[in-house]
Amino acid sequence: MKSSGERPVVDVAFQGGGAISAAEKVDRAKVLQRLRLGDTAFRHLTRAAALAVLIILSGIIISLIYGSLPALQKFGIGFLFEESWNPVTEQFGAIAPIYGTIITSLIAMLIAVPIGLFIALFLTELCPMWLRRPIGIAIELLAGIPSIIYGIWGLFVFAPFLQQYVQPFLIKVFGNVPVLSTLFEGPPYGIGVLTAGLILAIMVLPFITSISRDVFDAVPPMLKESAYGLGCTTWEVARYVVLPFTRVGVIGGVMLALGRALGETMAVTFVIGNAHRISGSILAPGTTISATIANEFTEAVGDIYTSSLIALGLILFVITFIVLAFARIMLMRLNARLGT
């Protein structure tokens, strides 16, 4: 790459460095003028493209606000706290989908964060060198599988499995425990909040793993070696050296995964059950913001219905924007520290 890039440049130098006659000077001025023009044009073109990225973002925000105005004007701030979602009477409230979005993401993070961190620990400290790349790639392939595949798999394979084996067991075990019994109440539907949370956990696992692995790898070997030299066990090195050093990066990675989980649409739509209510039981069907939009948008009739769905989209975008911005700031802080 390097040599092939350099060679033509050297040729140009030889041609340009030769003696220049007076007649050629005029041509040369013309060529230079043209190059100068092309240069400015290219510069402005790239700048415009960079600005286009900003325009896309502001376009998203403006169009969502514009689209949700009718609903927001009709329901006001109460839209955020109202539970009913009734297309017939045109009464819409966002709290049930918001609740579903948050609770499914919470379940996902509770499961995926510890497992993701342990996999990253395995990949950086325990795994033999020759296996690191294949296992790392395999985990990242999980992230490459389109979400619709998780959806169809969740609906036809995972949900029936949970319904037959896992959920009856959960109901039996926790049925008599005071607080937990409400969490695991009701018949085993198979589809529901818990199933969606579990699928999301599998989906965000690779994000947590790959970012944690990268930041774990960035820990200066000197630090780890001195801890090992003092006689620390692998776990102690991970817990008291690696984790404190990379905390900001790990939090960034976790937030990034959370942003994904909050906005994930297709996988959740398949297995959540689409019920517009808040249930104390995580076995019950529920809905999320993205699942509601995906299910109802094309069927929505009337301005208020459509507008309410767009307002849901706006809420989702604001939530994920905050989470993702926080994630980026965390990761930038880590990079700043590693860069120095």
Partner: peptide, 22 residues
């Protein structure tokens, strides 16, 4: 731009659908 781009990178794709719909 870098910051905004990173956010767009993981923005929920359904919101992009709504944007283009609008």
């Amino acid at each position: 731009v870098r910051f905004i781009n990173d956010i767009l990178l993981s923005a929920p794709s359904i919101v992009i659908g709504l944007f283009i719909y609008e």
